[in-house]
Nucleic acid binder design. Structure first.
Lengths: 195, 195
DNA sequence: GTCTATAGAACGATAGAC
DNA sequence: GTCTATCGTTCTATAGAC
């Protein structure tokens, strides 16, 4: 729990994080993890009860990293709607898919434990978006009739759906295309009060 | 190719279609397909070169079925924007995920052959949406400055992203929530010209 | 805490009888 | 065209030495 050198435990989690992004949960075999981390069979099952426990710890770390990175975008000093635009236009490796939501269609998602870190991550983004929308509403930039939670969910869905479109067409531009459409829709909502 | 009774070939494809929806491509093992279809090992490898060839034929059928069902929604006699709303609010089994796009994050998606039926399906929907947007534009219900292809991509992304949100939170309402947000965004685009 | 060796089951595919 | 039997590999996990 407090090693000076990099323990095999840490190496295992690091390898799991990489493999989860590259191929998802089912494709992450203990064999791959061991080869990648340089650990032996015993280390994995000494530190973790099995593959799922290792994956859960890796997912918790991934979620923490991604939320921290997203908060940087949202906490820049800018008007609320500009922060949303900054989030939508954030640089992404579209073809690699969302590091967390890419697991949505694996059978493991039926386990509540497995869903938790992914749900926390998506909910975190949704709240950031909703907060911006509410601030814009308070500033009179957005009609008071707009359902901020629902629009926030729609914007998040555009991002996650954008990853899907990019991967299916194997073309990162497809995601950018969808995001541009999202920004146009958001602008329409905005201009009603301003124009 | 022209049997009176149900050939094992047909039974295999039917079983593959069911299993692809339930668990995706990697989770669809030949063993499952055989058990479900009642066929023996030999039948699978007599009719198909392997698992991927069987899955491809199943995906082609799924895409054809889904596009036909979607065309019913879009070809109802209604104003263009009402057709979009009808598509967005169409009944869906959100927790089961999109029958085709749920494969977006499997490693098989890196094969162009595998992407084709899924890409055709998504592109078909995008074109239907774009056509409606263009008709609305021609009727003066939508600003001429709107990028119809981009907004169509955004709406499609809301649907596909909605499936992801529903599965991660294991709550079908999450998809409905995102779709409601999408409709509010679309309405904003519309009202600019009308209100 | 780390390692090697190995277990038992499932994987995708092939062989060959009928 | 359909079947059963089987192959070689990989999967996730355990055993047990050090």
């Amino acid at each position: 729990m407090m090693e000076k050198a990099v323990s095999k435990r840490t190496a295992l989690v690091q390898a799991a994080k990489a493999l989860l992004w590259e191929g998802g949960y089912e494709a992450m075999s203990p064999r791959d993890v061991l080869q990648r981390s340089g650990a032996g069979q015993g280390s994995l099952y000494h530190h973790f009860s099995g593959k799922q426990a290792l994956a859960l710890e890796a997912l918790d770390e991934i979620a923490a990293e991604e939320m921290a990175a997203i908060d940087v975008v949202f906490q820049r000093n800018a008007p609320p709607l500009a922060r949303i635009r900054a989030y939508l236009q954030r640089e992404r490796e579209a073809l690699r898919g969302c590091r967390l939501a890419r697991l949505a269609n694996e059978s493991a998602i039926e386990s509540a434990e497995f869903r938790r870190p992914i749900g926390v991550f998506l909910e975190h983004i949704a709240r950031q978006l909703q907060t911006c929308l509410e601030q814009a509403q308070a500033a009179g930039e957005l009609p008071a009739t707009v359902g901020t939670a629902e629009v926030a969910a729609a914007l998040l869905a555009i991002v996650e759906g954008g990853f899907v479109l990019a991967r299916v067409h194997w073309d990162a531009q497809r995601m950018q295309h969808a995001l541009n459409g999202g920004i146009q829709l958001l602008d329409a909502l905005t201009l009603r009060g301003a124009a």
